[in-house]
Amino acid sequence: MSFVRTFLFSVLLFSLFACSSSGQQRGTRDVQLKASEKHEIAAFAEGCFWCSEHIFEELAGVDSAVSGYAGGHTRNPTYEEVCSEKTGHAETVLVYYDPAVIKYSELLDAFFSSHDPTTLNRQGPDVGTSYRSAIFYLNDEQKRQANEAIRKWTPAFEKLIVTEVSPLKAFYRAEEYHQNYEKENPYNSYIRNVSVPRFEAFRKECKLKFKK
């Protein structure tokens, strides 16, 4: 996993923290965890959701990825509250996908190959429990596959995988300015110096099909 070490080395050169935004209104909402007949849902936390939303949306078979918050105890949290590390939430993406095109096990492969699951409460320059590595499962089968994926990917890393595996009890959609952030803000310094290099490293390593 040499690309992970390269990624971490590059992003540590920047002290750009997404939580510097302020003054945003409470605009999240509890998302109903139901998909259409042709789609299923998965939920992953792997650091900044600006990065992970872009990563999953580029995979063939993924209809959309929604940025939001999961795994906490505060109802309808704001971005600032999550960044305070007092709500227990992790920045999470809710992935809507077509299982006829991409399997849940393949999404798990994308998850483990697109971040470093051995860094506790940290991903690149982003530090705190809100940036922890986590798989939020919706049913027993997803739980089984998540734990199986951890065993599968353990030999790929020099350190112990610390990814949390927990039930998805609630998902709160993040404020609208967070949605499709990479596409809407291509010249943002964090996007250019962290998100894009991370995605390009993932694209080189990942063997899954991309949309383009």
Rank of each mutant, 00 (worst) to 15 (best):
F17K: 13
F17D: 15
A18N: 10
A18F: 05
A18I: 10
C19D: 15
S22I: 09
S22G: 11
G23S: 14
G23Y: 06
G23V: 06
Q24T: 03
Q24I: 03
Q25H: 11
Q25R: 13
R26K: 15
G27Y: 03
T28N: 14
R29A: 13
R29W: 10
R29C: 06
D30Y: 02
D30A: 07
V31T: 03
V31A: 12
V31L: 15
Q32V: 03
L33N: 04
K34Y: 07
A35M: 10
A35F: 04
A35P: 01
S36P: 00
E37R: 09
E37T: 04
E37K: 09
H39L: 15
H39R: 11
H39G: 04
E40I: 01
E40V: 04
E40Q: 13
I41Y: 05
I41K: 06
A42V: 00
A42W: 03
A43R: 01
A43Q: 05
A43D: 04
A43Y: 02
A45H: 04
E46S: 13
E46Q: 13
E46R: 04
E46I: 02
E46Y: 03
G47T: 01
C48S: 07
C48P: 00
C48W: 02
F49D: 05
W50R: 06
W50E: 12
W50D: 11
C51W: 00
C51V: 01
C51L: 04
S52F: 04
S52Y: 07
S52Q: 15
S52E: 12
S52C: 06
S52R: 06
E53M: 05
E53Q: 15
E53R: 01
H54G: 06
H54T: 01
I55H: 05
I55V: 08
I55G: 05
I55R: 07
F56S: 06
F56W: 09
L59N: 02
L59F: 00
A60Y: 01
G61W: 05
G61S: 10
G61T: 04
G61E: 11
V62N: 05
V62M: 09
D63M: 13
D63I: 08
D63R: 12
S64M: 11
S64G: 02
S64L: 11
A65L: 05
A65F: 02
V66H: 07
S67P: 02
S67R: 03
G68H: 03
G68I: 01
G68M: 05
Y69S: 06
Y69L: 09
Y69W: 13
Y69I: 00
A70C: 08
G71I: 02
G72A: 09
H73G: 09
H73S: 15
H73K: 14
H73I: 04
T74Y: 11
T74D: 13
T74M: 13
R75Y: 08
R75H: 09
R75Q: 10
R75K: 10
N76K: 05
N76Q: 13
N76R: 09
P77S: 12
P77N: 11
P77G: 11
P77F: 09
T78H: 10
Y79V: 01
E80G: 10
E80P: 00
E81W: 06
E81A: 14
E81S: 08
V82N: 07
C83H: 07
C83A: 14
C83E: 12
S84H: 10
S84C: 09
E85W: 06
K86D: 12
K86V: 04
T87A: 14
T87H: 07
T87M: 08
